[in-house]
Design a protein around this nucleic acid. Sequence first.
DNA 1: TATCCTTACGGAATTCGTAAGCATG
DNA 2: CATGCTTACGAATTCCGTAAGGATA
Lengths: 320, 320
Amino acid sequence: MNLHQFRFVQEAVRRNLNLTETAKALHTSQPGISRAILELEEELGIDIFARHGKRLRRVTEPGQLALRSIELIMGEVANLRRIGEEFSKQDAGTLSIATTHSQARYFLPEPVAQLRRKLPKVQVVLHQGTPADVARMLLDDTAEIGLATESLTDVPGLVSLPCHAWQHVLVVPARHRLAQVERPTLEQVAAEPLVTYHPSFSGRSRIDAAFLRARLKANIALEAIDADVIKTYVRLGMGAGLVSELAVRDDPVSGGDLVARPVGHLFGPNTSRVAFKRGAYLRNFVFAFAALLSERLTRPVIERAIAEREGQAQTDSFDL
Amino acid sequence: MNLHQFRFVQEAVRRNLNLTETAKALHTSQPGISRAILELEEELGIDIFARHGKRLRRVTEPGQLALRSIELIMGEVANLRRIGEEFSKQDAGTLSIATTHSQARYFLPEPVAQLRRKLPKVQVVLHQGTPADVARMLLDDTAEIGLATESLTDVPGLVSLPCHAWQHVLVVPARHRLAQVERPTLEQVAAEPLVTYHPSFSGRSRIDAAFLRARLKANIALEAIDADVIKTYVRLGMGAGLVSELAVRDDPVSGGDLVARPVGHLFGPNTSRVAFKRGAYLRNFVFAFAALLSERLTRPVIERAIAEREGQAQTDSFDL
DNA sequence: TATCCTTACGGAATTCGTAAGCATG
DNA sequence: CATGCTTACGAATTCCGTAAGGATA
C-alpha cells in the first residue's frame, strides 16, 4: 500500500475511470497506473472498480468506502505539505485562489495588492472558472481559498463564509431612455432587451427569480460571464446591461458613454462567499489574506468553521 | 513522502524518540529508520525532531502539527485495511478486544461465545492490560474495541459508551463474623483488613472515595488486579474481599467456603464502558459483538458516537 | 477497427541492511 | 566507554517504461 496507488485511484475516478487519461494527467505510463491499482485491490482484497472485460465500468460498493478513506488520506497529505511550507518558508509560499472572473477582475485586485505589500514573499496564483470549478479546485487541493457569489454553500466537503454584499446595477448608454430614470421598476427593465451574466454566475439566479416572482418574462439578448463583455455590448446598443455594482465602481461612466443605476431594490442583495476545504490546514498568509477580504474573516472565525463537521452551525452568525 | 516514513515517525514518538528501539519494534534496521525520517524532514523542509548533537531530544513545534496529520493518515490507512477485510472475507476476520482481567474473565466469556456461535469465522483475540493500556491499544489500532470499568471516558481520541452496571460485593469466609451480616455498614467493612483491586482497576476509586467521604481509614491488606487472586487470599483468612459482583456470579460460595454480600449501598453503582477509536471504521462483526455486550449498543448509537467531534454530546443519553 | 486495459520483460533507480564513524552522557 | 544517531557502500529488490496481447464497442 502506498501513496501513489491512492493518487492513481483518486485520479482515475476523477477521469471517469479512464486509465489512459489518468496516466496522461499524472505524466506516467498507463500500464503503471493499471498495475498499481491492481496491486492495491489485491492487497486490500477487494475490487475497487467493477470491470467489464478489460474496461473499468464503475466504482464498487467497497470501492466507495475505500475512496472515502483515500480522499481523507490524500487531503491530509496535502495538509502535511502545507505545514512544511508554512514553517520552512516563513510567510512565503504560493497562495492559490480559485475564483470567478467578476471577483478576479473587480474585487480581488485590491486585497491581492495589499497582501503583496504586506507579505512580499507570497506568490499569488489565480485560477479562474465557474463556481462549480471553484468548488472542485478546492476539493482537489488545486486551490486553498475560493471566492464566488453563488453555490459555494451546500457543497459537501467545503465550508463557506460570507465575504461581502453587493447589488446589481443597470447599465445603459447615456442617451438611452432609461438613463434618466433614477429608480427603474421591474416592468421597465423587463421591457428592454437585456445583456447579463451566464446562469451560473454573479447572482444571475437572483435576476431570474425576481422576474419569475413578478410573472414577467425577461428578454435576455445576450449572456456573458464577465461584465467587461457585457458593457461592450451595451455600448453597441444591444440592450440594457445588468452587472454587479463592483463592475462600475471605478468607471461608472467610463468616458461618459454609460450610465449606471443601482437596482438592488429589484433583485435584492447578493453575497460573495469565501470557501475552504473542510479540515484544511491553512498557512498564516491565508488567514492574512482572508482578513483583507473582509474584516469579519478573522482567524478564529475561519478556524471554527473549518473544524466543524458536515452540518454547518453558527457559520453565518453575522450578516452583511 | 511515503507511508513507511509516517510509521517510523509515529513509532519513534511512541518509543520516546529512541530510534534503536523503534527499529527493533518494527523489525528493521536502525539506519533505515534514521534515513527515512531524515528524508521526510528534508522533503517537508522542517525538523520534526529537535536534535542535540546526534540524539533526538524532543518534537519540534512544526513536528507536533505534522504528527497530528501523520496520526490521522495512519488511522485512516488502518480503516482502509479493515474495509478490505470486511468485504473480502464476509463476516470473517479478527476481532481484537482490549480489556482488563475482570471483564475478560467474568463478563466477556458469554458474549464472546455467542459471537463465535453466530459468526464462526470471526477469530477473537483478547489483549489484557490496565485501563490505560486499553486506551493505548485502541489509539494505536492494536485493538478495535475496548472494555473497562474506569477511565475510558475523557481519553482524547476515544469515544466510550456505557455497557453494563454492577456493584461491589463483600466476600468473606463462611465462618467469618461478617458472614452473618446481611447488609454490612461502612464502619463494619472499615474494621476489617481488606483485600481488593489495584487502584486503577474495577471501581477501586469508588471504594477509596466512599471511605474518604466517611472519613474512615481503610485497612488495605492486599491489592491485586483480579478477583481470583483476591478470593484466594480471602480463603487464606487475610481479610475481607471487595470484588465485582460479576466475580461471584457463578460460584457465590464455590464449595460453600465463601459468602458474598452485595455492598452497592456503600460504594455506589459502577459502570463498565465500551470504547472505540474516534473516526474508526468498524466491520459488521464489531457491531454484532457490541450488540451482544448490551442490547443498547446498537449500530446507529455507536456510529453516531464515533462520528462525533471531540466534545461528546448525547453519548450518555441512556442510563443503566 | 479503434479504444483501452492487462501482461511480459528488461534496464534503471531505489531500497535496505551491514559496517564504520562520531557525538553524547 | 556505552549508547545512539548518521554516513558509506554494495547487493537485492522494486519500480517503471516500452512493447505486445486481448477484449470491448
